[in-house]
Design a protein around this nucleic acid. Structure first.
Length: 586
RNA sequence: GCUGAUGUGGCUCAAUGGCAGAGCAUCUCACUCGUAAUGAGAAGGUUGUGGGUUCGAUUCCCACCAUCAGCUCCA
C-alpha cells in the first residue's frame, strides 16, 4: 500500500535477511547468557526484522527485553566470528541433546535423511542453522537495533503443542533509519481504523456484543454509498440480486455439508423442536433459489448476487475491530455456468475485481488455496478445478502464490489480499470454485441437446466483508475518504450568525442536488469551525460571511487547506459534482 | 481458544491502602468574529463485573467479561 515503507539502505533483500538472521542468533546468544535455562526453538528473519521462539520458565517483560538488548550490544562489540560446520546426524543429535535443547533435537530428527546438518558458531554459542550469516557479530550496529515485542506462538504453529514466547526484533545499518522506522510505525497506528472509526463516528463495538459491530449514522452512510456503487458495477457485469433468509433448518445445512464441516463456527438454536442455524455463508440459500425453477443453457452463466448478513462464531482472541468480526455482510454472488464457461467467467470476475479495487487505488496479492484435509469431492475433481483457476489467472498475466491445503471444504479458491496501514494483509476478495454444491443440491440446466446437465458454480466476493473493506479503506485513506464516499461531503460554515440563514439556504440547495451537507451554526469563531471540520476530514468547507452574502458567493476550502476563493454556489456544485461523478481521489 | 498486557466521566489521560483529578467534548452566559482552538462559569465518575483480604479497596488477591499484541483460524 505505501511504497515508501520499504526503503532500506540495505543493499538488497538477501543481505537484509542475512543481517536480520544473524541478529536473531545474537539475540538467542544474549538470552542464553542471561538465562541458560531457556530452551531455543526457531529464529528466522521475516519481512521486517526477525523473531526467535523460546521456551522460558518465566514470562518475558519489557524490562527483560532491555536487558537482552544490552547484552546483544555487548556481543556486537565482541566482534565474534561466525563459523559454519556440519555434523553427521548422530553427532548432531548428541550435540543438541547434551545442550538440553529438545526443540533442536526434534528439528534434527525431522530433517530428511540425506540433508546436511549445519551449525553456526559464534563465541560460546552454537545454533542449528542452514544459514547464511554475516561473518562477524561486529557487522551489526548495536544502537540501530530494537526488540519490538514479545508474544506467544505455538511450537510449529500447532495449537495442540507447547506455547512458546516469541521475541521480535528489528535492526538497521544506521540509527536514524531505526528511528525513521519506529516513527513510521507510530504514524501508521494513527490510521488504525478502530481509532478513526471512533473519531469519525463510523462504528462502535460494545462488550454486550463482542465482534458484532454497530454502524453509526456516518458509517451507515459510507456503507450505503459503497453498496450503491457495488450495485451499479454488478448491474454492468450482468448480475441480478437476491436476498435469502438469515436462518435455515438443520436439514439444509446437512445437505450443504456445513453441518458436518463448519458446525463449530455456526450459531444454532432450536425452534419447535427443530434445529436451526444462522447462516455462516449465503450459498445454500442461493442453491435453493437456483433449484426453484428450471434453467436453460441459454441462461448461463447466471450471475446472482446477494449482500448477505452472515454470522460466524470466531475465537474470541481472533476478533479485531472491523477486520475480524463475528457478524458481517458479504457482497456475495454465485455464478452458475457450464464447464466450458469456467475460465471465461473467472477472468471476467477478476476484471470486475480490478475495476473495483482501482477505484479505491488499492493493490492486492493473489493466493491460490488448494485442497484441505477436511474436504468433500474427489482428488481428481479438486486437481481439475485447481488447474482451471491457475490457467485463468496466468492467462491474464497475473502472479499468485500457492497456499497449500487452505481451500474451502467444497473447493479451491483464489484469495485477493489487501494490506492495512501496518502492512498486515487481509483477505477481501475471493473466487471459490465449487462443483460439490451443485451435486448435493442436484442443480440442473437443460442443454442444447435437450438433456439435463449439472452446472458448476463459483462463489465470489469482491469487497469480501463490507465491514472489513470499510476498515481497509478507512486506513488506506487515513479517514479522508474521496468526496464520493465521504459521509459528509460539504460543511457550510457561517462566519457570524448574520450568515446563518444564507448558509442554511446553500446547504438546502446542495442537499437538493444530492450532496451530503451539514451546517455548523455554532456560535464559534470561523477558525475553530475550520479546524474541526478539517479534523472530521470533510472534503469541502464552505465559508460564508457578509462578503459572500453581498456578492452571492460561497468561499470553498478543501480539507487539504487549499482555499478555492469565492465562487457561485452553482460553480462549486459543478466542481464537486464532477469530483463525485469521476470518483476522484484527492 | 492459547500466552502476555490492559480496563478510571462521552473522548484522551493523571493519581492514591484513607474525601478520585486535568484537558477536550456537553450545558449556561458574554463576545458577532473571514480560513486550524475567544473568555468565564456549571454539570458529569459507587474507577469493567462479581467475590475475597482489610477498620477502610479504585489501589492488594481470586474468578469472570471485554479490549490490545501475537499465535491458531478466517471474509
Amino acid at each position: 500500500m505505501s511504497e515508501e515503507n520499504n526503503q532500506y539502505t540495505f543493499e538488497n533483500e538477501q543481505y537484509r535477511k542475512t543481517y536480520w538472521h544473524t541478529c536473531s542468533h545474537v539475540m538467542a546468544q544474549a538470552v542464553k547468557r542471561l538465562w541458560p535455562e531457556v530452551k531455543l526453538a526457531i529464529g528466522p528473519s521475516i519481512d521486517e526484522g526477525w523473531y526467535y521462539d523460546m521456551d522460558a520458565p518465566f514470562a518475558f517483560t519489557p524490562e527483560h527485553l532491555e536487558q537482552i538488548e544490552a547484552e546483544m550490544r555487548k556481543i556486537c562489540k565482541e566482534k565474534l566470528k561466525l563459523e559454519r560446520f556440519e555434523l553427521p546426524r548422530a553427532d548432531a543429535l548428541k550435540f543438541m541433546e547434551e545442550k538440553a535443547e529438545p526443540f533442536k533435537v526434534e528439528l534434527i530428527n525431522d530433517l530428511p535423511e540425506d540433508a546436511a546438518i549445519s551449525f553456526y558458531k559464534q563465541g560460546e554459542f552454537t545454533d542449528l542453522c542452514a544459514g547464511p550469516h554475516l561473518d562477524s557479530t561486529g557487522r551489526i550496529k548495536g544502537n540501530a537495533m530494537k526488540l519490538t515485542a514479545c508474544n506467544a506462538a505455538y511450537w510449529r504453529g500447532d495449537s495442540n503443542r507447547e506455547t512458546l514466547q516469541r521475541i521480535y526484533g528489528i535492526a538497521f545499518p544506521k540509527k536514524d533509519e531505526l528511528d525513521a522506522y519506529l516513527q513510521r510505525i507510530e504514524e501508521a497506528k494513527k490510521r488504525d481504523h478502530r481509532r478513526l472509526g471512533k473519531e469519525l463516528g463510523l462504528f462502535m463495538l460494545r462488550d454486550e456484543g463482542p465482534g458484532f459491530p454497530f454502524f453509526l449514522p456516518k458509517g451507515m452512510t459510507l456503507k450505503n454509498t459503497l453498496l450503491d456503487y457495488w450495485r451499479q458495477v454488478h448491474k454492468k457485469y450482468g448480475y441480478v440480486e437476491i436476498s435469502t433468509p438469515i436462518m435455515l433448518n438443520r436439514q439444509l445445512w446437512e445437505r450443504s455439508g456445513h453441518w458436518d464441516h463448519y458446525k463449530n463456527n455456526m450459531y444454532t438454536t432450536v425452534i419447535d423442536d427443530v434445529d436451526f442455524a444462522v447462516k455462516p455463508m449465503n450459498c445454500p440459500g442461493g442453491m435453493l433459489v437456483y433449484a426453484s425453477e428450471p434453467h436453460s443453457y441459454r441462461d448461463l452463466p447466471l450471475r446472482v448476487g446477494e449482500i448477505g448478513l452472515v454470522h460466524r462464531h470466531e475465537l474470541s482472541g481472533a476478533l479485531h475491530g472491523l477486520f475480524r468480526v463475528r457478524c458481517f455482510s458479504q457482497d456475495d454472488a454465485h455464478v452458475f455456468m457450464t464447464r466450458e464457461q469456467m475460465q471465461d467467467v473467472i477472468q471476467e470476475t477478476v476484471r470486475l475485481f480490478d475495476e473495483v479495487y482501482s477505484i479505491f487505488g488499492l493493490t492486492y496479492t493473489i493466493e491460490l488455496s488448494t485442497m484441505p484435509e477436511d474436504h468433500i469431492g474427489t482428488v481428481e475433481e479438486w486437481e481439475r478445478n485447481q488447474d482451471i483457476l491457475k490457467a485463468a489467472i496466468t492467462g491474464m498475466g497475473k502472479e499468485f502464490v500457492i497456499n497449500e491445503g487452505d481451500g474451502a471444504f467444497y473447493g479451491p479458491k483464489l484469495d485477493f489480499h489487501l494490506a492495512d496501514s501496518l502492512g498486515r494483509t487481509w483477505q477481501c476478495g475471493t473466487i471459490q470454485l465449487d462443483s460439490q454444491l451443485p451435486e448435493r443440491f442436484e442443480l440442473e440446466y437443460t442443454g442444447e441437446d435437450g438433456q439435463k446437465h449439472r452446472p458448476v458454480m463459483i462463489h465470489r466476493v469482491v469487497l469480501g466483508s463490507i465491514e472489513r473493506f470499510i476498515g481497509v479503506i478507512t486506513e488506506h485513506f487515513a479517514g479522508a475518504f474521496p468526496a464520493w464516499l465521504a459521509p459528509v461531503q460539504v460543511k457550510v460554515l457561517p462566519v457570524t450568525d448574520r450568515a446563518e440563514e444564507y448558509a442554511k439556504e446553500a446547504a438546502a440547495k446542495l442537499d437538493e442536488l444530492g450532496f451530503r451537507c451539514e451546517v455548523d451554526g455554532r456560535n464559534e469563531k470561523i477558525g475553530k469551525k475550520i479546524r474541526e471540520a478539517t479534523l472530521e476530514k470533510v472534503p469541502y468547507m464552505l465559508v460564508v460571511g457578509d462578503r459572500d452574502m453581498e456578492n452571492g458567493t460561497v468561499s470553498p476550502r478543501h480539507r487539504s487547506g487549499e482555499d478555492l476563493g469565492a465562487m457561485s454556489l452553482d460553480q462549486f456544485a459543478a466542481l464537486l459534482g464532477e469530483e463525485v461523478k469521476t470518483r476522484a481521489i484527492k
